[in-house]
Nucleic acid binder design. Structure first.
Lengths: 245, 245
DNA sequence: AAGTGGTCTAGACCACAGC
DNA sequence: CTGTGGTCTAGACCACTTT
C-alpha cells in the first residue's frame, strides 16, 4: 500500500510546493499517462493530508508550466504533445503574411553514430556514447523552408533510428508516446549565417543568402537535456516571432 | 471622495479580475508612481469590499505580469524600469562567451518628422502625424554590435527630440520617468538579412555579411503600441537567446 | 511591537460536464 | 443528479521588515 509520503508543516518548503513535487514525480514515473485525468483535488487532498486549497495551488503551478490542463467540470488532464502544443510552444516561425503551420518533413538521413564531444557535453552524456542523428528538410506548402539536424541520445530512444523515412512530422509526440519522454521546455540560440552549397541545393537559394540558424536544446520533465536541434532557415518569406512579457 | 466603485458578485467577471482591472487603471492613472508601495492587501480589501484572499489573487496576477513586485514584510511596489528589468525582459542578445550587458549607445540622429503610412498604422496613429525618429549605434566593450532605428509618436513624448545626443542608454526608463509611459510588453520579428553599405561602415563589416534584423513593437500598460524599433545586429560574436517554456 | 506579505485551513456556493 | 474545477470568504498562524 502506497503511503501518503509524510508531509510536515514547519519545513524548508511550503506544503503546496512539496505536493507539487510529489505529483510531478508520480507524473514522471508514469502513474498517469498523457491524456489521462489526475485524481480529483479532493481525493489528492485526502491522500496527502492537506486541504483542497493547498492541492489547488500545487496543481495551478503545474498548469502554469503546461504540465497539465484543467477542465472545469471534467477534471485535470496530463498534457499531451499534440501538434497544437508543438505549434504554440515550440514553433516560432510565421509566414510573412501571418499564416502559421507545422511544415511537412522529408527525412534525408537517420543513423546511429558516436556522439562528438560537443554534443555529448550538451546532452550530459559521455563523449563517444551512441546518439541518433536525423537530418530533415521541411516544407511549407511544398516549398522548402529549412533544413535541420537533430541529435538524441540512443539510450533514451532505443531503436529510433529504425523509423528512418517513416519518422513522423511532430517528433515530440513520438518521443512522448513511444519513449515516455515529454519535452517540457527548450532554449534556442539564434544567429544570422550565410548559406552554404548544401543549404542552397535543398532550399533552392542563391549563393550566400543570409539564413537564420536556430540552435535548440530541449529538456524533459526533469530538466535533463534530451535533444539537440540545429535549423537553418530561409527568412525570405518567414520570420521568427518572439513575444516578450 | 473616490467611491469604492461598486463591485457585484454574480457578474460576467470574477471579483479578483475586477479588482485587478481597477488596480491597473489606478496604476496607469498614476495614483502610485514607479517605486512606490501600494496600500496593503488588508486596506485594499476594505476599500473594494472584498476579502483579502481576493485582493491577493488580483495582486498575484499583477506580480506575474511584472507590473508590481512583492516584498514580504515591506509591501508591494510598483515596478520600475531599472536597467535590470530592461536587461531581463527586453534584451535577448548574449555574447557567445555567455556575457550579457546593456550596450552603450551613440545617438546618430534624432529628429521630428511625419509618420510614414506603415509606421503610423503600426503605432495606431494617423498617417503623417508627427513622430520622432532616433538612430543609434550601440557598442559592447567599445565594439559596435548593432545599429537601430526607433520611432515613437511625438504626441506621447513631447519634446523628446530635444534630448538629441543626450539621450540615455536605457530609453524605457526615460519613457517612464519623464513621460509616464511604462513599456509592459513587446513583440519581436526576426529575420536574417544581408548587410548594406551603411551597416558595414558603422559595424565595420565585410560586404554582404549576414545580419540579424529585429523588428520590435513595444506596448504600454494598456497594450497600446508606443514604440517601433528596428535593430540590425552582427551575430559574429553575439546570439539571440530565447527560452521556451 | 506593529505591520506587511506568505501559507494553510474549512467551508460555502457557483458553473460546467457527463451520466 | 453527481462530481469536477472555479470563486470567495473568514480567520489562524508564520516569516520578514521596519519602527
Amino acid at each position: 500500500m502506497k503511503q501518503p509520503q509524510l508531509i510536515q508543516s514547519p519545513s524548508p518548503q511550503p506544503l503546496y510546493e512539496q505536493v507539487r513535487r510529489l505529483l510531478v514525480e508520480r507524473l514522471t514515473a508514469g502513474d498517469w499517462g498523457p491524456g489521462e485525468l489526475l485524481p480529483s483535488e479532493a481525493a489528492l487532498a485526502k491522500v496527502y493530508g492537506v486541504s483542497q486549497g493547498t492541492v489547488r495551488k500545487a496543481v495551478d503551478a503545474m498548469a502554469a508550466e503546461r504540465l497539465v490542463v484543467r477542465h472545469q467540470g471534467r477534471g485535470t488532464e496530463v498534457a499531451k504533445h499534440t501538434s497544437e502544443r508543438s505549434l504554440f510552444q515550440f514553433w516560432h516561425l510565421y509566414s510573412d503574411n501571418g499564416d502559421r503551420q507545422i511544415p511537412t518533413s522529408d527525412t534525408l538521413k537517420c543513423e546511429r553514430r558516436k556522439a562528438p564531444a560537443r554534443d555529448a557535453k550538451l546532452l550530459g552524456i559521455g563523449a563517444g556514447e551512441p546518439v541518433v542523428r536525423i537530418n530533415r528538410c521541411r516544407y511549407v506548402k511544398n516549398s522548402p523552408v529549412l533544413i535541420e539536424w537533430i541529435t538524441v541520445p540512443a539510450e533514451r530512444f532505443p531503436g529510433i533510428e529504425r523509423y528512418g523515412h517513416e519518422l513522423p512530422n511532430t517528433l515530440y509526440a513520438l518521443y512522448q508516446t513511444k519513449y515516455q519522454v515529454t519535452i517540457q521546455s527548450a532554449v534556442e540560440n539564434l544567429k544570422a549565417v550565410a548559406s552554404n552549397a548544401r543549404d542552397e541545393r535543398y532550399l533552392k537559394l542563391a549563393p550566400g543568402t543570409p539564413l537564420l540558424e536556430i540552435q535548440r536544446i530541449a529538456f524533459d520533465l526533469e530538466n535533463r537535456p534530451v535533444e539537440l536541434r540545429t535549423s537553418r532557415c530561409s527568412t525570405q518569406h518567414l520570420h521568427y516571432r518572439n513575444v516578450l512579457d
